[in-house]
Amino acid sequence: MSDGLSTSFGAEAHNYELGRPDYPFEAVAWMLEPLPADSHRIADVGAGTGKLTRVLAKAPGAEVVAIDPDAEMLATLRAGVPGVPTFVGTAEQLPLPDASVDAVVLGQAWHWVDPVRGSEEVGRVLRGGGVLGLIWNIRDERVDWVRRLTGIMHGSHAEVMLAGGGPVVAPPMGALEEHTWEWARPITRDLLHRMAASRSYIITAPDEEKQRIRREMDALFDELGLAEGATIDLPYVTRAYRSVKS
């Protein structure tokens, strides 16, 4: 989680917060299902602006800490989810003691992680029977205009990984279980542009490439009749995975 793309998001933290979707509570609850019903401590790793953190904080008895390699993202998180402790760190080098948390979760992040080193480090900080939860919101490209949108913006590292067979974990983490949820987010033209601007490919692209992407996105939205202020349903598939420490 330390290459230039994975640490580029801070430059677009505001657009990330506005443009990216929240996670369905049901999907987050499913990741934590193997844990006892009483209180538990959760580390949100690659927490970004707190999209997953705020959902975790709603879980009964949850005590959440947020970890991210980008201090700018964590500053946005602290403003939006006050009271949650934040730490700079990565999945491969967690700033946590041994056996100190019941769950480690990553939203839109495990594709940046070395799965062997990350699994070893997660296993170190998890208590016995602890859970690793991985979750992604992926646009549903079975819908024609969504597939065309991705073609304009370029596929992300996450989309490539999930299309290629999904995430991988290593010992001491056990086999991954998977579940999916389908839903839609009403979204405006402005928020679609903000979502695009928060993607690592576009953040690090030359100005002429950014201009091309915006121009082609606007042409697509004009074709769809998406006027300023109007909304269109952007379909998503949320893919969640969980693994129990063996």
Rank of each mutant, 00 (worst) to 15 (best):
G4L: 14
T7D: 07
A11K: 13
A13W: 01
A13G: 10
A13Y: 04
N15G: 08
D22A: 14
F25Q: 15
A27G: 15
V28T: 05
A29D: 11
A29L: 12
M31L: 13
L35D: 06
P36I: 11
R41Y: 02
D44N: 07
D44S: 08
V45Y: 10
A47C: 09
T49C: 02
L52K: 03
P60L: 12
V65N: 00
I67T: 04
D68W: 05
A71T: 12
M73P: 04
F87Q: 14
A91W: 02
L94R: 13
P95M: 12
V101S: 05
A103W: 05
L106E: 09
G107S: 11
Q108T: 11
R117G: 14
G118F: 06
G118T: 13
G123M: 02
R127A: 11
R127Q: 13
G129A: 07
G133E: 09
I135N: 03
W136M: 08
I138V: 14
R139D: 08
R139G: 11
R139P: 00
R139V: 10
D140W: 00
E141C: 04
W145M: 08
L149I: 04
G151D: 12
I152C: 04
I152Y: 06
H157T: 09
E159I: 00
M161C: 08
A163W: 00
G165V: 08
G166Q: 05
P167I: 07
P171A: 15
M173G: 06
M173T: 03
L176H: 06
E178R: 15
T180M: 13
W183C: 01
R189M: 05
M195G: 01
R199S: 07
R199L: 14
R199F: 01
S200K: 06
S200E: 04
T204E: 15
Q211Y: 00
R215W: 05
D218H: 05
A219Q: 14
D222L: 07
L224E: 06
L224W: 03
L226C: 07
A230I: 02
D233L: 15
P235Y: 11
Y236A: 03
T238F: 02
R239Q: 13
Y241T: 03
Y241M: 10
R242P: 03
V244P: 00
V244D: 12
S246T: 14
